[in-house]
């Protein structure tokens, strides 16, 4: 394929997909080890009511308020889950189930009630995203990458997700040691003077930011898949956290690239005319990677577990 076709049509969605996958997979590693993997699931469900409320309050489909609304809804959901868990003495899984389904139902109801037919805001879009439509019209070829005028026309989702990915990366690097210690031994971390509770909440908030930024570009289904599948597959490849994070980023990139290419060109190779959903395909590929890791990963069992259990 020539640059004239690739750069405007495929490069931006591909980059956005890769960045979204990395931004979600990084905090996903820690959430997985802390047995909070489903937080990503809950967050991506409650993003919908947040966005709808932001739209109803401001009356416009603008990214700023919507990101704020989504982030606010994510934080509210975390607080509510904790409140329901403590006040009602309910196990965390059930508390999560109660809160995120109710908030999602509220979001759908609000969406149906309000007049959003004129704007591009619906449930299916929220779930699937529209990765394929994030094209770069100003680009004419590889040379556009150094042309400031053309660069100004890049889809705004790209810079946002890049910023979010950078933020997540910075958080992971700066707080690496406390994160690592508190993930594996919370009691020991507390004796070392690490604010364990604050760190836990910060991790969830960072995850929420990554989820909201990715959600904006690629829809919630990739968000859930990328929070869980690459870290889970990486967990089966190694016993060291550093290596696990490395593997997970690799798997995330692989899922994004392979998924995008398969969705865009796979059907053409099979003789069909139209592409399939890129978001769905990326999630599917990440699942296949996890399946492969679960079958052949060198560390798929707990260390010390019987070989043929």
């Amino acid at each position: 394929m020539s640059g004239a076709e690739f750069v405007p049509l495929s490069l931006p969605p591909l980059l956005i997909g890769i960045l979204a996958a990395i931004a979600c997979a990084l905090p996903g590693n820690f959430l997985l080890l802390r047995r909070q993997a489903l937080i990503g699931d809950a967050i991506s469900h409650v993003v919908l009511p947040g966005i709808v409320v932001a739209f109803l309050v401001t009356g416009v489909v603008a990214t700023g308020p919507m990101m704020l609304g989504a982030a606010g809804a994510a934080v509210l959901a975390v607080v509510l889950i904790e409140a329901v868990r403590r006040l009602g003495r309910i196990e965390p899984g059930a508390a999560m189930g109660v809160v995120f389904t109710a908030m999602f139902a509220g979001g759908v109801l609000l969406l149906e009630q309000s007049d959003t037919s004129s704007v591009h805001l619906d449930v299916e879009h929220a779930l699937f995203g529209n990765l394929e439509s994030l094209i770069w019209l100003e680009a004419t070829g590889w040379s556009s990458l150094v042309d400031p005028e053309a660069l100004a026309g890049l889809p705004p989702e790209l810079s946002r997700i890049a910023l979010a990915a950078l933020g997540v990366l910075a958080f992971t690097v700066v707080f690496w040691r406390p994160l690592k210690i508190s993930t594996f031994d919370e009691g020991f971390a507390a004796t070392q003077g690490i604010p364990v509770g604050l760190l836990g909440i910060s991790l969830v908030i960072v995850a929420a930011i990554a989820a909201v930024a990715a959600f904006d570009a690629v829809g919630s289904i990739i968000v859930i898949a990328m929070f869980i599948c690459p870290p889970a597959a990486a967990r089966l490849m190694t016993n060291r956290l550093e290596a696990q994070v490395g593997w997970s980023v690799g798997f995330a990139i692989l899922s994004a690239v392979l998924g995008y290419v398969l969705a865009g060109y796979g059907p053409l190779w099979l003789g069909a005319r139209d592409a399939v959903s890129a978001a769905g395909m990326i999630a599917t590929v990440s699942g296949l990677i996890l399946a492969a890791a679960a079958l052949f990963g060198p560390h798929k069992m707990r260390s010390g577990a019987p070989k043929d259990a």
């Binding site: 699931d41 779930l127 889970a232 769905g280 990326i282 990440s286």
Partner: peptide
Amino acid sequence: GAVLSVFFGFGI
């Protein structure tokens, strides 16, 4: 989480 996201993605 893995099963729900992957199956849902494949469904899409």
